[in-house]
């Protein structure tokens, strides 16, 4: 059994503190759901675990089976068995999906995977995820629909077989059928050697992938942990009740969107 342990984690973006002493312990074999209003630190938590350079850890610890994750580079974290299914996967022109996937698989192996084995593995997973066959030859996420990008994240998770998957709103952009397929793929990964942290706003996702633990993240801290009943409560009542626990709910600052044109005025 592996353990991912987060202790008293404080994280800043720019000058602003987002996570304020967060504690969480996840073991393989478990699926943890993290819910909470927008702008309270859910994505920050997952991105910090993965090592996004934008997030600065000012205090606290993250360990994977006792190893200090915070001193590892992003790729070392990935090779140690962490995987982040991103909310907004990057589009990278010129690199075909299959070239990228093969490079990613080989990054974890001593001997490179044989082309034949790779293609068989890729085809099988593409079919299981109901993805378009030509996806392998298209450039990485370029021109993919929102749903295709999310399925591509799950495809990568399946091929890379991480110990812990962190899935950031993996259900957004998915239609009902795609949601079922993606949920099926996550469930198929469940084993004593696989742990998962899922961020989602929707009960539907957690109906399909039943979490073992549920946490509510508000103001950069986990304010309550429990079981599936918490998801039902949030689905029915929203987050207003959190205020009764003495926490203010932080809302995203609303800023006007500035549109800039490169053409001349009136054109």
């Amino acid at each position: 059994m592996s353990t991912l342990k987060i202790e008293n984690l404080h994280v800043e973006v720019g000058e602003k503190e987002i996570l304020k002493g967060l504690n969480l312990e996840i073991h393989t074999g478990e699926v943890h759901a993290i819910m909470g209003p927008n702008g309270n630190g859910k994505s920050t938590l997952l991105s910090t675990i993965m090592g996004h350079p934008k997030y600065k850890v000012t205090n606290g610890k993250i360990t994977l089976d006792g190893q200090d994750v915070l001193t590892m580079s992003v790729d070392e974290r990935a090779r140690a068995g962490l995987f982040l299914g991103m909310q907004y996967p990057q589009e990278i022109p010129g690199i075909t999906n299959s070239d990228f996937l093969r490079a990613a698989i080989n990054a974890k192996r001593e001997e490179p995977i044989s082309l034949f084995k790779f293609i068989r593995m890729l085809d099988k997973n593409i079919e299981e995820l109901g993805m378009n066959e030509n996806l392998a030859h298209r450039y990485l996420n370029e021109g993919f629909s929102g749903g295709e990008k999310k399925r591509n994240e799950i495809l990568q998770m399946k091929l890379l077989q991480p110990r812990f998957a962190l899935l950031d709103e993996i259900d957004s952009g998915l239609d009902v059928d795609a949601l079922r397929i993606v949920a099926g793929a996550i469930n198929s990964m469940r084993s004593d050697d696989f742990g998962c942290v899922m961020v989602s706003h929707y009960e539907r996702m957690f109906e399909l992938v039943q979490p073992t633990h549920v946490h509510v993240l508000v103001q950069g801290q986990i304010v309550m942990s429990g079981g599936y009943e918490l998801i039902e409560k949030i689905d029915q009542e929203g987050y207003e009740w959190v205020k009764e626990l003495g926490y203010e709910i932080e809302q995203n600052e609303r800023q006007p969107i500035i549109l800039e044109a490169c053409g001349k005025k009136g054109q």
Binding site: V74, D75, A78, I95, F100, Y139, L140, L160
Partner: peptide, 20 residues
């Protein structure tokens, strides 16, 4: 960051991006 988060070293990621 995206490529590194899949296990590619920074050098490998840079090479792949340049290649693309």
């Amino acid at each position: 960051y995206y490529l590194q988060s899949r296990g590619l070293s920074k050098k490998q990621a840079m090479q792949l991006i340049t290649y693309g």
